[in-house]
Write a protein that binds this DNA or RNA. Structure first.
Lengths: 188, 188
DNA sequence: GTCTATAGTGGGATAGAC
DNA sequence: GTCTATCCCACTATAGAC
């Protein structure tokens, strides 16, 4: 295995960041190759499917990153209420650290491409399902009834996504913090 | 006053629909003028500020439409729990009626433009604030304490937006329906 | 108020050398 | 694996006639 980061990985990483920041249509392949530092001629070699394929792999990278972040965050406490609440508070803190200028993972690509690219829509769908599963698993481990845990996993995911979207738009972490505050009510 | 719809209104209405469906960058001014039926040369006469100004007025139109829809929906019952729950259920039903292909109001433009156009960001922010106020007012009328009503208004807004985004991406109204189901828990 | 033409830019994608 | 050149297309915006 190579120690150095190869061109393909650099392209995916940069694409992942730029798509999240600027959205799908506003991000050009020129900008991606330039900022990635990858050779300019290598894009269509690694991604014969062009922009769509690159976006697909970028979504998968973002999804894995976020998914790991959720699972790691939920390990902070055996109590699911404290763990999930703490996780959302962490997101709020992280949001403020970047001045609310970091973009919203997955959501931009999901909204822009769900109706025009079924592969991209499915990738975003899979991402969200994995997020939900992470919450659901935590609740199952804590003894929640199966169906209840599944439903709450989805609802928590919706709250976090919605709060992220609102905090981003308002330039203010209040929605994220308020969602964190309501977690105990929801999980009572 | 003119009985017929003027060109400016037709442009705003079409822009509002297309931006919601396709997003900001994927929607061209050519398509808007064509589908609106407005004279092709009239766009920059009515909107000297170009695409940004048109989008601004489109966001305001969408915002007013959604805001009225919320207020109207919340009038269905004096009980805030039933009213809000019924409203979210109505959204879910409406979502399914259009096969989940109607796009998400405000969110697409918010995500695509918040970092590149402060006027558009503020328009989206104002839209969300109005949505939140509608929920908050309902809770205040029902006797909820001021601060609690404000916080819940924001949280309900985040849940609806998040559920809309997830339902749209998953092509499934389940997130919206599950959020409706949790409203009584949240507002207990 | 509306029309046409066009400037000027940048997009995604391909071909063929190396 | 990488590079350069290039094609074709779409976009926003402006100028100037009517």
């Amino acid at each position: 295995m190579t120690e150095k980061e190869n061109s393909k990985d650099k392209l995916i990483k940069t694409a992942s960041r730029l798509f999240q920041l600027q959205g799908y249509h506003a991000t050009g392949l020129n900008q991606i190759t330039k900022e990635s530092g990858a050779p300019k001629g290598s894009l269509y070699y690694h991604f014969p499917g062009g922009k769509e394929q690159l976006a697909l792999e970028a979504v998968q990278l973002t999804a894995k990153f976020v998914s790991d972040q959720i699972k790691c965050g939920l390990d902070s406490s055996p109590d699911p209420v404290k763990a999930i609440q703490g996780f959302v508070e962490d997101i709020a803190a992280q949001f403020q650290k970047y001045g609310g200028k970091g973009g919203v993972p997955i959501a931009s690509i999901a909204l822009e491409t769900a109706l025009i690219s079924e592969p991209l829509r499915k990738a975003c769908q899979t991402a969200y399902k994995n997020f939900q599963d992470a919450f659901t698993q935590k609740l199952l481990t804590a003894g929640y009834e199966t169906n209840h845990a599944k439903e709450l996993g989805i609802v928590i995911n919706t709250m976090v996504e919605g709060a992220f979207l609102l905090s981003f738009t308002m330039g203010n972490s209040e929605p994220l913090r308020l969602v964190a505050k309501q977690i105990p009510v929801l999980l009572q």
